[in-house]
Write a protein that binds this DNA or RNA. Structure first.
Lengths: 224, 224
DNA sequence: TAGATTGTTAATCGATTAACAATC
DNA sequence: TAGATTGTTAATCGATTAACAATC
């Protein structure tokens, strides 16, 4: 191996398609656990994604978990391993900005604490919404943001403001040194490269569904 | 070409990665249109996805749109072409089942009509929620479902019930001959192969974000 | 033990990028 | 015209499947 080769090699990256599937495995395993299943085969897991079972075994090996020949994977063991891998077994502290309908729904969405998310405060810039109650939270003004981010060591900002306001909120949040943004506003946000943005654009899902509906071909739509 | 070759060939399928990007193009083009931009280059569009501009030109050719050398693509023209391709320029009729927080937020989410979705009714099985108002809709009992699906020729069912109830609702909807399901319950639904299911599982987004946060590597996270 | 299922290397398939001609 | 940008074919890269040995 020469120098050029060494430089090119990145630190064993995880295939992006694998990373997309992993959260779904977790969900399927939760369902199985609830049903009382103890073991699951790669073949069973594969059918949800319409891929070969070999692919599932590759994905599992990326996570660093080992199955048992003949019996398969331990449901609880693999679920735990994926949780560790994704970092959802440890708590992530979040704030939510935008106390509208969607923001309220999210704050009370029960799934989120299951995935290690702990919301610590809700903000809105509209003075009329201040002091209102959203779930267990009192809506706070944006001026309080810096203080709260620091005292709670907030890692994730959830943006549920209208799209016109989203970029300004994003900038504000980045200034507070938050490195993960969960964006529900239907617009593309700009942020420095070290900030991770997850766009949860509902219109995208609808568009894909509409396309499949138009074509009336179901295949591959389940995991798109 | 022999018979075996002919049989293998499918009817010019659209690359799945292209299909994933197309709705985002539409969103970016909307933003540009609002800013008054008339033309856009493949290079500009490419940077959002961190792919080569060649890829964007390939995607556009799949849609069947033509750009102009030197000036690029017409923002409004390409947006229109994508809208036609996705089927969002024509109206899709939907019902929503599950009149909880998330259901209410969705019904009033302004982006949805922009994408051609027309909700015609809201259902819930909880008698306490009946006759309540959700946006412009009165919550109706599930018994009315069949009647309304038929009279409005409903194409899409939006499921926002708790995950325990989701499969039963899915079955009910499939029985009404609805071929597209937009599922917000955090569970994997089973349906015949000709039914398209789009899972909008928020926990998946959170899991991915959590993983990136753990690693503090931002690359590739914007479009994941 | 025999059979089922995992784990891994090699082969194939599909998606992305490189190269370059066409054109406004 | 010269330069920028599209459109398309060929080369590369990455993801999936095939083949098969290991093991419970």
């Amino acid at each position: 191996m020469n120098d050029t080769d060494r430089i090119k090699k990145p630190e064993s990256t995880i295939p992006v398609q694998t990373l997309r599937r992993i959260p779904y495995y977790h969900q399927i395993l939760s369902d199985l656990e609830q049903k009382g299943e103890r073991f699951v085969s790669s073949k069973y897991l594969a059918h949800f994604f319409r891929v070969d079972d070999t692919q599932v075994r590759k994905d599992v090996s990326v996570i660093g978990y080992k199955g048992k020949p003949k019996s398969g994977y331990s449901v609880s063991g693999l679920k735990q391993a994926i949780g560790d891998f994704l970092g959802i077994n440890t708590e992530n502290t979040a704030i939510l900005i935008g106390a509208g309908k969607l923001g309220s729904a999210l704050v009370e969405y029960p799934g989120l604490n299951e995935y290690g998310l702990k919301t610590v405060a809700v903000f809105d810039k509209d003075p009329k919404k201040l002091d209102r109650k959203i779930g267990a939270f009192t809506v706070q003004p944006l001026e309080k943001l810096a203080e709260i981010v620091q005292s709670f060591d907030v890692g994730i900002a959830i943006i549920t403001v209208p799209k016109e306001a989203a970029q300004a909120i994003c900038d504000l949040v980045v200034k507070q040194n938050i490195k993960a943004i969960w964006n529900f506003a239907p617009t593309q946000l700009s942020a420095p490269a070290d900030v991770t943005i997850r766009n949860e654009n509902m219109a995208v899902g609808l568009a894909l569904l509409s396309h499949y509906l138009k074509k009336r071909t179901a295949e591959s739509a389940i995991f798109s």
